[in-house]
Amino acid sequence: MNSPSIQPPHQDGKIPNPGADLSQALEDYLETVFLLVKEQGFARVRDIADARDVKAASVSPAMSRLARLGLIQYVRREYITLTPLGEQVARRIYARHQVMTRFFVEVLKVPRAVAQQDACAMEHSLSPRVMDAMARFLEFMELCPEGTVLLEQYGRCTRVNHCETDCCDSCSPDGSPAASPPVSVSDLRPGQVGVVTQVEGRGAIRQRLLDMGILPRVRISVERVAPAGDPIWIKLQGFQLSLRRKEASAVLVAPV
């Protein structure tokens, strides 16, 4: 259900911002309505109560207040729907929630359940500017090739607190941690899988490897070896290639 692309929660100043006047509880209710409408097309008081784990009786007053703010259409005993303004606000709240959760999970490597709980708690108190900055940061870390490498490195690094001064020196500049020395694809046995960390070599041969999609972070598995021991047969990105050991040795991988 989480949208693949990151929408900056704060778009531009022209949109009225009634969200700022909402209390945390109302924001949560609005978000719930939004999710229910998205999921099943409508929302009922009972569904909302179930989703938020509260009594139906406490839902109704909140709905009335949201209706007064022009965010939802609410008539007793009928389905609740979002007004265009309400949908806009709800979307923004939801997007913020998503950004927070993803930031916790993907950057900080916090377990998802914890991340969701804390995102709920924090999303209301952060200013749009900070949210925006966070979204941008997240986007950068995802798109920038080095960002992803850094994230991976951070994920593997468990000793930050005890880091000696030479901790960073021990990481090789291409981003592969010195802890597991890189091996080449030609060192993998049939059935073994590795993630590419570096493509060495130069000129035509290297370009050919790159053209075939052998790039950092791509998973390569060695399928089989020719009867004479060379060339080898690899699988990557849904297709299969053969290459000689000499060429394969230019592709460095971290075994999985």
Partner: peptide, 10 residues
């Protein structure tokens, strides 16, 4: 120099 033997196996 030898040419690379990077060949697709459809």
């Amino acid at each position: 120099e030898d040419a690379p033997f990077v060949m697709e196996l459809p």
